[in-house]
Amino acid sequence: MHRRWGRLRIRRPDFERLLRASDHWTASAPGDGVIALVSIGRLQHSPGVVDLGVQVADHLHRRSIGMGMVRFAARHALAGGAHTLSVYTGQDNAPMLGLLRRLGPASTVRDGGHTELRLSLSEVTSHSSPPFDEDFHDPSHTARRPQGPDRS
């Protein structure tokens, strides 16, 4: 969390802004609670382009959780009329850059220490899905709209 947001907890205003500006889902696992979050929101000045945000608990990286959630969100965006997935991330964010490389070819624009990548949603959704994606609606992997910030 600190590496992504600059702090260990997401502030309430940031969380509320995310809820208003995007569609989002969480994944949970028995005993772990919420293990991942994916969100997509339309870019205001780019019709048909959605911005992607994805976070997976650090100890669960490289288990296809993020990939499954991104493909789930991409199918939702494509069905809603979007055509392009946009991601703005730090050039040192190896987990996100690795996930994006596996999604398909991307156009890349560097901006200081960050990179914006854009991928075709039809390309993202056309590849075979990892096993997690097939189990996404299984009771052990639930998707739900978050109700508010974690207060624990």
Results as ranks from 00 to 15, higher is better:
49 V>P: 02
89 T>N: 07
53 G>R: 08
23 D>T: 13
65 I>R: 02
73 A>C: 08
37 L>W: 03
49 V>H: 11
29 A>F: 11
146 P>V: 06
152 S>V: 10
25 W>I: 00
2 H>E: 15
63 R>K: 15
91 Q>P: 03
27 A>E: 06
31 G>V: 06
61 H>F: 13
33 G>P: 00
105 P>H: 11
26 T>A: 01
83 H>I: 01
59 H>I: 01
13 P>M: 09
15 F>E: 03
143 A>V: 14
91 Q>C: 13
136 F>S: 04
45 H>K: 07
100 L>P: 03
137 H>P: 00
134 E>W: 14
7 R>L: 05
71 R>I: 05
132 F>N: 01
3 R>C: 02
1 M>P: 09
146 P>G: 12
75 R>Y: 08
108 T>Q: 15
73 A>L: 09
125 T>R: 00
12 R>K: 09
18 L>E: 15
122 S>D: 14
99 L>V: 02
21 A>Q: 10
32 D>I: 01
84 T>S: 04
22 S>W: 06
138 D>R: 12
115 T>S: 13
14 D>A: 15
59 H>L: 01
108 T>N: 11
6 G>M: 11
127 H>T: 14
115 T>L: 14
4 R>H: 03
147 Q>N: 06
52 L>N: 07
99 L>P: 02
97 L>F: 05
131 P>K: 08
82 A>Q: 10
102 R>T: 09
117 L>W: 11
79 A>Q: 10
113 G>W: 04
121 L>H: 10
45 H>D: 09
135 D>A: 15
99 L>M: 04
33 G>H: 06
27 A>L: 13
24 H>T: 07
56 V>A: 06
144 R>V: 11
142 T>K: 13
81 G>A: 04
77 A>E: 01
123 E>V: 12
3 R>I: 08
46 S>I: 05
123 E>Y: 03
152 S>E: 11
87 V>N: 07
55 Q>N: 00
21 A>F: 02
114 H>K: 04
21 A>H: 05
40 I>K: 01
101 R>K: 11
42 R>D: 12
88 Y>L: 14
76 H>M: 12
149 P>D: 02
50 V>Y: 01
6 G>W: 08
107 S>E: 15
134 E>P: 01
11 R>F: 15
62 R>Q: 14
113 G>T: 13
102 R>G: 09
103 L>I: 08
102 R>C: 02
25 W>M: 00
13 P>R: 09
61 H>V: 06
93 N>H: 15
34 V>N: 04
82 A>F: 13
139 P>Y: 09
39 S>H: 13
23 D>K: 11
97 L>I: 03
94 A>M: 12
136 F>M: 08
151 R>E: 14
55 Q>D: 05
53 G>D: 06
128 S>W: 05
133 D>P: 00
24 H>D: 00
63 R>M: 12
113 G>M: 03
151 R>I: 12
103 L>G: 06
43 L>D: 10
135 D>S: 15
110 R>V: 06
112 G>P: 08
93 N>R: 10
46 S>W: 12
103 L>M: 15
78 L>T: 05
52 L>Y: 08
19 L>K: 04
52 L>R: 05
43 L>N: 07
57 A>E: 13
121 L>R: 03
138 D>P: 04
52 L>M: 09
50 V>N: 00
118 R>F: 08
25 W>Y: 01
115 T>A: 15
78 L>R: 10
3 R>P: 01
58 D>N: 02
95 P>M: 08
116 E>Q: 14
134 E>A: 14
101 R>F: 07
